[in-house]
């Protein structure tokens, strides 16, 4: 549905996007992940025909974004970072206007507007002036605007920014329910969002694609070793020293939760795939300490992300 091939974009001498290529299949939700200023928005703007690429090509639904931009525009719904709202208009009038310029047939327009309002839960504010809406509602009207002409492809730039936790869940559910009929690209720097909504992730940093896979695979691939959180009721230094001396333990990092002075929390990392839990427990009991918690800590997507987007050297132990 979407093909991006070697897209490069300069702003003057600054390279914003560097040779980015990826594909999105029909009905798929693709997460576009990266720190701020990584080139997410620029890539999306190239896809939406807002910006031409300096080099490379992109196709949406088989149409080139540069040579057949009008065909592409008919087939995409785009929610930019700041929802493009005319503040002085009423929600319903605004969506009606968008439906008009998106070439919705006059006889279907009212139905299209009603559907978009219903899907995004904004029917009750339909007659309000956009200026008076809360940030959350504005974001949802922005989403309604992207949906109103029922496009094949949805391009959403940070769609959950500014929403409260309940609304965030609702919007994610909405996005998930749209997959299948629509192909969706979703950019974000909130990691749980990607693991919750997307089937595939493209991680981009400094304009380059640094990884592309499913969220699960990415986490698996990059977490080479097993990590555990250990909570013990003994002085931290003693526990740390003891655990570090055990066979199979590669690294012990103190991670005390603040406010609790009696218990020490540590992160223990094993070498390779070796099971270290029995050794840990045995050693703790033998020392006469009480074990309060032992939980496996898989490398979260957050860690993967940091791992891929920061070039810091591992501290030498």
């Amino acid at each position: 549905m979407i093909e991006v091939q070697n897209v490069t974009r300069y702003f003057g001498r600054v390279m914003a996007v560097n040779d980015v290529s990826f594909e999105v299949a029909k009905g798929e939700i693709l997460g576009f992940l990266g720190p701020n200023a990584a080139g997410k928005t620029t890539t999306m703007r190239v896809l939406t025909t807002y910006l031409p690429a300096t080099k490379g090509t992109a196709k949406v639904a088989g149409f080139d974004v540069h040579d057949q931009s009008m065909e592409v525009r008919k087939r995409i719904g785009y929610l930019p970072e700041n929802p493009p709202l005319y503040q002085e208009m009423r929600v319903r009038d605004y969506l009606d206007f968008v439906a008009k310029i998106k070439q919705v047939e006059p006889k279907n327009r009212k139905k299209a507007v009603d559907e978009a309002l219903g899907k995004t839960g904004t029917t009750n504010v339909g007659n309000r002036v956009i200026k008076t809406l809360s940030k959350g509602y504005k974001q949802r009207v922005g989403l309604a605007q992207a949906l109103v002409h029922n496009p094949d492809v949805l391009i959403l730039d940070e769609p959950t920014v500014g929403l409260d936790p309940k609304q965030i869940i609702e919007v994610r559910e909405l996005i998930k329910s749209l997959a299948g009929n629509h192909t969706i690209i979703l950019s974000t720097h909130i990691l749980p969002e990607v693991s919750m909504t997307c089937e595939r992730v493209v991680i981009i940093d400094k304009g380059k694609v640094v990884a592309e896979d499913s969220p699960d695979n990415l986490t698996k691939k990059l977490s080479g070793s097993m990590r555990f959180k250990v909570v013990v009721d003994a002085p931290r230094d003693q526990v740390e020293e003891k655990l570090r001396s055990l066979p199979g333990v590669k690294k012990v990092t103190p991670a005390n939760a603040p406010g609790n002075k009696k218990l020490s929390t540590l992160l223990v990392e094993g070498q390779g795939k070796e099971e270290i839990r029995p050794v840990l427990v045995k050693s703790i009991i033998e020392n006469g300490w009480n074990l309060y918690e032992l939980t496996p800590e898989g490398m979260s997507l957050e860690d993967v992300f940091l791992h891929l987007t920061t070039k810091e050297e591992e501290p030498v132990q």
Binding site: T49, Y50, M70, Y78, P80, E81, N82, P84, I101, K102
Partner: peptide, 14 residues
């Protein structure tokens, strides 16, 4: 200023 230009320029209007 408000970013609505992005809506106009990604809609099928010339």
């Amino acid at each position: 200023k408000t970013g609505t230009i992005e809506l106009l320029m990604t809609s099928p209007i010339t």
